[in-house]
């Protein structure tokens, strides 16, 4: 189990961060996913762990997105003066602090994350499982508990939307 979790944790974190755009939330989701897998499915055959892990991860991401939406609505109701965010912390880093190439890659990645977050949950899941986790259509269908046809549709729509959104950033 340790080896399996060590293998998947990095990619799972990338998927969670792309879907949630928040590092702390992504880490919480990974923690919860690992705990649920160990508690409920540790006695299953090891080849079943991967689809189970990503199914739990998908559910946890959706739960977290709902919580974040509620939080956002509550924060929107609060008066602006209550905000405790430090403007210095929020300011972008100095452009010269990193090499240009890395900065460009970071910018592209951020725009990809932002675009992925606008996708409907099922499209987001299909895209991230197929691209970030390199799953084929059948494996993705197993994780998403739907037909391979649905996976193809979700994935195709996701790619189409992302290409449309990213357009200029994607050269």
């Amino acid at each position: 189990m340790n080896t399996f979790l060590a293998e998947v944790e990095g990619r799972a974190f990338v998927i969670a961060r792309a879907a949630l755009r928040n590092e702390a939330d992504a880490l919480d989701v990974i923690q919860e996913t690992m705990l649920r897998l160990v508690r409920k499915y540790a006695d299953r055959a090891s080849d079943e762990w991967r689809p189970l892990f990503y199914r739990i991860l998908g559910n946890c991401i959706i739960d977290q997105q709902r919580k974040s939406n509620v939080r956002r609505r509550v924060m929107a109701v609060q008066p602006a003066g209550d905000s405790e965010t430090d403007p210095v912390e929020q300011a972008p880093g100095h452009p010269g602090a990193e090499p240009d190439r890395q900065a460009m890659a970071d910018e592209t990645l951020h725009s990809l994350h932002a675009a992925v977050q606008t996708l409907p949950a099922r499209q987001q899941q299909a895209f991230l499982l197929r691209v970030a986790e390199d799953m084929n259509v059948t494996q993705t269908a197993t994780v998403m508990e739907c037909s391979t046809g649905s996976v193809k549709t979700h994935y195709s729509r996701a790619v189409h939307t992302l290409r449309k959104i990213l357009g200029d950033h994607w050269s």
Binding site: M1, N2, L5, A6, E9, G10, R11, F13, V14, R17, E23, L27, I30, Q31, M34, L35, L37, V38, A105, L109, A132
Partner: peptide, 22 residues
Amino acid sequence: AEGENLSAPVRSKLNQARQAAL
């Protein structure tokens, strides 16, 4: 590339999460 270049604090937190689950 993002997965391969995770920062040390993130790797450490992932490791802690894994140990807690185990």
